[in-house]
């Protein structure tokens, strides 16, 4: 917990890191997929296994990517389904407050971490954020 009343809505552990992941980091892009995803996608993806999957990210949430903390600036309309159904998430360090593509999760411009097997990915919702019922 990072603040009183904060809620963790998604948590997973990295199970595999594809050989092309580092090259994608150079483009400000980090791609997650669930372990059940087609093997053809594994080379470019961080595979992870969810231990908690209550919700996808929203703007204002905090992402913990390994030891790096990132505030979510914008979230496209298909992000939640992608994450909860497929374990899939496209994290972009593009600094945008409106997502460029419907699957984008946007964070500040800057380096994204190269994850290792056993690292954790976590989405935390601050306690003062207004509840949205959908």
């Amino acid at each position: 917990m990072t603040a009183s009343g904060a809620t963790v809505v998604y948590e997973s552990e990295v199970t595999q890191v594809g050989g092309q992941v580092e090259a994608f980091l150079g483009h400000g892009l980090l791609i997650f997929f669930g372990a059940q995803s087609p093997v053809e996608l594994h080379d470019m993806s961080v595979l992870h296994k969810a231990t908690l999957e209550d919700d996808g990210p929203r703007a204002g949430d905090l992402l913990q990517v390994g030891s790096t903390e990132l505030e979510v600036l914008a979230v496209g309309p298909v992000v939640r389904d992608n994450l909860l159904n497929l374990g899939h998430l496209d994290l972009k360090a593009d600094g945008r407050t409106e997502p460029n593509l419907p699957g984008d999760v946007c964070v500040r411009v800057g380096d994204l971490p190269l994850l290792r097997v056993g690292d954790h990915f976590r989405i935390t919702r601050p306690g003062n954020s207004r509840e949205q019922h959908t």
Partner: peptide, 15 residues
Amino acid sequence: IDCGGTARVGVYPMK
């Protein structure tokens, strides 16, 4: 595909 992002959109055409 039903990709709204970058991954699946690119990887199949790449191949």
